[in-house]
Computed example of a mutant assay.
Amino acid sequence: MRPTLRAAHKRPEHTETTQERLRRLNLTMIVPPLAAAGAVLVAVDARTWWDAAVLTLGVIAGLVVVERWTAGDTSRVALPCLIITAAVWPFGVLVADSHTAFYGITIVGPYLIPQLTRHQGAATLGLSAFVAAVGTAKLLESPDDVPGVLIRYVFIPTGVTVVATGLMFANQLFYKLMEQTRERDAELAVIGERIRFASDLHDIQGHTLHVVKLKITLAEKLLRSDTGRVEEELREVHALVSDTITQTKELAYAQRRLNLSAELENAKNLFEAAGIRVRVNREADVEESVNGLLGQVLRETTTNILRHAQATRVRITLSRSGISIVNDGAREAPLPGLSGLATLKERVGDNGGELTVEQENGRFLTAAAFPSLRSEKLPAAAREDD
């Protein structure tokens, strides 16, 4: 089914566009604040140009991981950046006397751990233990200020690392949910396309089969009394089947478009062949934008009248913004489920219209209207075709 395959094929392009937008959004919202915060921390803590260079290297390694994370590819930079930031933290503690040198590793670690396929908990515990152990080493230089060292070099860095890792796990869950939502959207689009295709196929072949049945029944009745008419009916059946094959091919290649005028002429011929009197009232020319959809409504209604009603009269009214079909001979009991009209009701509604189906006192009304297309002025004169 080519329409279904084409709909499924277009979806990845949309997904790629969405991912690119998310990447740009992440780069805009995450990288500048992280870079600014890192620059401030380096400016505050660095006492020499050497300290500034090493601390800046840790910040840059963290930003590189973030940039690659937004692109979905951290494999090539993960290990080098982790090694750099892991080395900057001990340098800051033991050499530069910087209690903020953990900044780089609290970016790299939380971004990389959620991407692990397993042992994420152990990796989180190991990262936190490393940050805490390096901070504790500061007690070797400052044994007289234990509370201060523990707060600045152990508790705060470790706490920030744990919180940042937890936030990244939540962020990963959010992106997984978004990906699942996109996949569900793609699946629903494919299902919707299949339903549309099945509905159109039902319109074409179901209608044709009922008409063929009607004409064959008529030919059987005339077989002995009017062989010329029988030959004419069989030729029409042959032409109808050929036309249905053509329409089915057009549907498969998404080239089919119903024409209301052709459907109107077809409906008149079918009703007359069944001995049903038809009256057509033309109040105005139908808007081109809804021509095909109103043709579908007329075709489905014609099939339902031939199948479910014992009609003797049908009145079809055309306006600029809609169509109404009224027939007599409707059953007093509730009609069986008209799935074709139910599908058309959704389709008409999706295009801003309303489909009305009413049954009362042996009369059945099917009407489709598009209020937004109604003309402000009434037509000067209406035309009626008997």
Rank of each mutant, 00 (worst) to 15 (best):
L82C: 08
V95G: 02
K221D: 14
S75Q: 06
V326I: 14
L27A: 10
T85P: 02
R383E: 15
E358C: 00
L260F: 15
A198T: 04
D203R: 09
V108H: 05
I323A: 06
T312R: 15
G295E: 08
A132N: 12
R257S: 13
E250N: 00
L222H: 15
L82E: 06
I245S: 13
I151R: 14
A309W: 03
L298F: 10
A71P: 03
R2A: 00
L94G: 02
F364S: 10
L355N: 06
L294F: 09
L223G: 07
V160I: 14
A36E: 09
A132F: 12
T4W: 00
H207G: 13
G206M: 05
I105W: 00
L373Q: 11
E187F: 11
G121Y: 04
L167C: 07
D226Y: 10
T217G: 14
E232V: 05
D386P: 07
Y103D: 00
D73Y: 04
D200T: 05
V190Q: 13
T244P: 04
R182I: 03
R229H: 13
A37T: 12
F364I: 11
V108I: 03
A133D: 05
A254L: 05
D45M: 08
F169I: 03
A380V: 13
I60D: 05
A43V: 01
A132Q: 13
F102C: 00
L335Q: 13
R47M: 06
N259C: 10
L25D: 13
L293F: 04
D243C: 04
Q205N: 12
N304Q: 12
V64A: 09
E220M: 12
K10Q: 02
I84Q: 08
P33W: 09
R2Q: 03
E354A: 06
S321H: 13
G352R: 03
L306A: 06
T106F: 01
L201Q: 10
T70K: 05
Q359N: 11
H210Q: 04
G352M: 02
N269Y: 09
V162R: 09
V163S: 04
R2I: 01
E16R: 15
V237L: 07
F174Q: 14
P157M: 09
T70Q: 13
F271A: 14
L365Y: 07
E179W: 08
T208M: 09
P110Y: 08
D97W: 01
I84W: 06
V95S: 05
L167K: 03
A311L: 07
